[in-house]
Design a protein around this nucleic acid. Structure first.
Length: 841
RNA sequence: UGGCUCGUAGCUCAGUGGGAGAGCACUACCUUGACACGGUAGGGGUCCCCGGUUCAAUCCCGGGCGAGCCAACCA
């Protein structure tokens, strides 16, 4: 592009000859990233320097399933802004990178890939079973390597100042040992147990799912009314007292096929329609099996017929009823999605086939008395959109209540704060009604459960390493077989804040950076991830994993729809970065990162902020032109720096200079406040308004006179301009790291960095904007008088211009002089530039 | 069913108890020495609707309508 490749980077000041005409991000972004990274600018120290604070964020590890989307761009932009800001404030700053193995999601991707590759022995597409566990895992690791690299590149293109030396993966060796440690400890604490309970089962993924992994979805369905005969214990018909005929009881169901597993019919105890049937039996149609009629207040009298068929093995509510009334659990559906032996004549059929067949027969026998339309919810597998079936299965669970209680308390006591605040309420609601967490998955990709089953005593040995003996019966290792299941992917990511810092070893990094300062992530994984990190962190570290939780809104497309591959409305951040540069994208995301609202990304906003980058670019170019050309050679930097020089003359500065310095101060304060309050849009707006609306539109226009005039006035204006630009670049750097660094490097009077960047050897400070000290929001240059004067000036000029219909810049100034108003402040100001204008004439 | 968020210009969005705003799009003029990724001027809005509090409401309160999200045991 515009910059020759051989240009010497970052050692020799750029002059206007090699400063490109306009903002061309492709020419410098990647070079700058390499420069920062290789100079060790991103690296945190294990221990704080004297008087230094630590600031740490762990990245929400992206799934290695594929590429980063706009939501990742948003979260990583926000995190990078906070990270860079703290680094400039002199903190020992760590932003720790890594990726998540994403069990089921990744496995599904690799399976899809395999299926495309050919047919197995039965003529069906290849499955993981054709490869075998070992081969399949090899394939998945290869996939992981490939995609992790891609994700790293995307994060780099975005400018993320991550400490890559500390990069982690949820299945790397150290992390795996942390996972085993946690499992063993929880098991020993009796907080992990294995039990046969009702769980969600995906018949396609062939695995158990947690409650969270099932997405309730509206489906159009029917409510079928089916008649059961009411009989006595011996099977003889009960006579309906009302009609004198054999009594019938009609139930309403959306899933008639589960009738095969019914073990009761429930009615409300106060429902007078059914009082006569209490304690009797109902005869299941088609099967003829007798089940008790029970009463429970759970039953809603006004829904359906007020009579509820109870299938404890295939419905969560019925399961609870079954437990309460000690009913048998008849499992009719197998993990393969077909009716099992208990289904009698229907065994071997798929659910849907069984339903059709049963309805047909019930219709013929007259037992199906009514069919109504009904909107109901079905749970779909989060990964594959298949209906998740509740079945009873032996799985591993975390007993969650003892972990949830301290996690609730920590937020109540303010040890962790949520932003926006409203999420706290949502958090409490969920945590207070939490169910035990099913953590075993019948997958291959993941942390295999560190439990060994003994073939000799059937006992279970849970251990950190493969045991040499059964802990129950001392059988030899040959009798032991490791549990084949793996852990829910969120089990391991729950350990992320301390697992990544070296736990269970007691590392210095852990001392320095735990608890982390901030967790920034999407509100959609509040329960999946945030809540579990809080529980795990408190249990294993005795301390919260982070002090603040920032939850950003979801990124949607222009129409407000969730971006998803299937809808084809995904905007790849890399495409936008290639087109417009990383800084415009980052600025856009920051400007739209207001709280509590979904973000609809429109590309024209990015284009607008690209123009903004160009504007700043040209403001700096303007400075270079003036600085070089105006006096035939560089002016020397004032002793002690521009700031000191300007402060010393604070009272006598030309009004335009005093004004822009005052505005600069105001802007700096606003930016700082925005970052502090997590209102990044405020910071972005302050920068935008100052740079374009004040510095470029007014100050630079006015500076042209004194700059052309020469002498003291030019000197003062040039120093002011340099100072304002340098400070602007500094405060804008967290949001727009690339363009600000690139331009800052060209400034002639760079101040030495306050914190030397470390290279790999811990030496060689490099000159970079990344370590410029963050301007403290002090009122050094606040100047109310100058603001008023200039404000009146602007108003006057605008009024004159309107009156005369003039629109050029120099008349702007001339009119101001000619039409001097009576306002004394304006008079004073105008007099100060009157001479300049005369000199020009 | 409950909870939450939102409703501001054609589009995407800021914002505030007293003047209605930005970007993009649109109209006219301007290639002036930083920038046409620019400049100047301009058109365009019942700030969802109805009540209330207030000297004053787009903003605060109540109700409604609409959009979306989250959590749910009504089969």
């Amino acid at each position: 592009m515009a910059i020759p490749k051989q240009r010497i980077r970052l050692s020799e000041p750029v002059t206007r000859e090699n400063l490109p005409k306009s903002f061309e991000p492709q020419g410098f972004e990647q070079q700058l990233y390499s420069f920062w990274k290789e100079s060790g600018c991103f690296d945190a120290a294990d221990e704080n320097a004297q008087g230094q604070r630590a600031f740490s964020i762990v990245i929400p590890p992206p799934n290695v399933t594929g590429v980063l989307h706009m939501g990742h761009a948003l979260t990583n932009t926000i995190q990078d802004i906070l990270t860079r800001w703290h680094r400039m404030m002199g903190d020992n700053t760590l932003w720790l990178p890594g990726t998540d193995h994403a069990g089921i999601a990744t496995q599904a991707q690799v399976e899809k890939q395999i299926a495309k590759e050919g047919k197995g022995p039965t003529g069906r597409p290849l499955t993981r079973h054709d490869l075998g566990r070992e081969k399949f895992l090899e394939r998945t690791w290869a996939w992981k390597e490939e995609h992790a690299t891609h994700i790293q590149n995307q994060l780099r293109r975005l400018g993320s100042s991550l400490d890559w030396k500390r990069e982690r993966f949820t299945m790397d060796e150290g992390f795996s040992s942390a996972v085993r440690e946690v499992f063993v400890q929880l098991y020993n604490d009796k907080l992990i147990y294995r039990g046969e309970r009702i769980i969600n089962w995906c018949t396609r993924c062939q695995t158990a799912l947690s409650d969270l992994e099932v997405v309730p979805t509206d489906r159009k369905g029917f409510l079928w009314h089916i008649q059961y005969a009411v009989v006595n214990d011996d099977g003889s018909p009960v006579v309906d007292p009302a009609t004198g005929a054999p009594a019938k009881l009609t139930i309403a169901t959306t899933r008639p096929e589960t009738l095969l597993g019914d073990t009761a019919v429930a009615v409300h105890p106060a429902d007078e329609r059914y009082t006569a049937f209490h304690g009797k039996k109902a005869k299941l149609p088609l099967l003829g099996r007798l089940v008790p009629v029970i009463t429970d207040e759970y039953v809603a009298m006004d829904f359906g017929t007020g009579a509820l068929k109870v299938t404890p093995a295939h419905d969560f509510n019925d399961y609870d009823l079954g437990k309460k009334h000690d009913l048998p659990f008849v499992q009719v559906m197998g993990k393969d999605g077909k009716i099992g032996a208990a289904g009698g004549p229907f065994s071997g059929m798929k659910f849907s086939e069984a339903r059709e067949s049963m309805l047909q027969q019930l219709k013929e026998s007259g037992e199906l008395v009514k069919t109504e339309d009904h909107q109901n919810k079905v749970g779909l597998c989060q990964r594959c959109d298949q209906v998740a079936e509740p079945i009873i299965s032996k799985q591993w669970f975390v007993k969650i209540q003892p972990l949830a209680d301290p996690a609730i308390a920590a937020v109540r006591e303010g040890k962790i704060t949520f932003s926006p605040k409203m999420h706290e309420k949502v958090y409490f609601e969920w945590m207070e009604n939490i169910r035990d967490w099913c953590i075993s998955r019948q997958l291959w990709w993941g942390h295999q459960i560190p439990a060994w089953h003994c073939s000799s005593c059937q006992g279970i040995t849970v251990a950190r390493q493969a045991p040499s003996r059964c802990h129950e019966c001392s059988a030899r290792a040959s009798a032991l077989k490791q549990d084949e299941d793996v852990l829910d992917t969120w089990f391991s990511s729950g350990l992320w804040p301390f697992g990544t810092l070296g736990w269970p070893a007691n590392t210095r990094a852990l001392d320095t950076f735990y608890p982390t300062s901030i967790l920034e992530t999407g509100s959609d994984i509040l329960f999946f991830w945030v809540a579990r990190m809080i529980m795990m962190g408190l249990h294993f570290m005795d301390e919260v994993p982070f002090k603040k939780v920032y939850l950003h809104a979801m990124v949607r497309d222009e129409k407000g729809e969730k971006m998803s591959k299937s809808k084809g409305n995904v905007i790849d951040p890399l495409v936008l970065i290639d087109k417009h540069g990383a800084d415009p994208l980052r600025f856009t995301l920051a400007a739209m990162a207001g709280q509590g609202r979904d973000i609809k990304l429109a590309e024209d906003r990015v284009e607008g902020y690209r123009a903004f980058c160009n504007k700043i670019w040209n403001a700096v170019k303007f400075f270079h032109l003036q600085w070089e050309e105006a006096q035939g050679g560089p002016i020397k930097e004032p002793d002690g720096g521009a700031e000191k020089w300007l402060l010393a003359r604070k009272g006598e500065l030309a009004p335009a200079n005093a004004w822009i310095l005052s505005r600069l101060q105001e802007m700096t304060t606003r930016v700082d406040k925005g970052f502090s309050n997590f209102e990044l849009n405020e910071s972005a707006q302050a920068i935008y308004e100052f740079a374009w609306g004040e510095l470029c539109d007014w100050f630079i226009e006015f500076s042209k006179l004194p700059l052309r005039q020469g002498g003291e006035a030019r000197m003062e204006t040039l120093i002011t301009l340099h100072y304002a630009l340098e400070k602007l670049l500094t405060v804008a750097h967290p949001i727009m790291p690339f363009v600000t660094e690139e331009l800052w490097q060209t400034l002639p009077w760079k101040r030495p960095a306050n914190t030397p960047a470390r290279n790999q050897k811990g030496e060689l400070p490099v000159e970079t904007l990344m370590f410029q000290s963050w301007p403290r929001p002090e009122a050094k240059f606040r100047n109310t008088e100058a603001e008023q004067t200039f404000g009146a000036m602007k108003g006057l000029i605008e009024a004159i211009r309107n009156f005369r219909g003039e629109n050029n810049i120099s008349p702007k100034v001339e009119f101001a002089v000619k039409y001097t108003a009576t306002n004394r402040a304006v008079e004073q100001f105008v007099r100060s530039i009157e001479n300049d204008v005369k000199a020009l004439a």
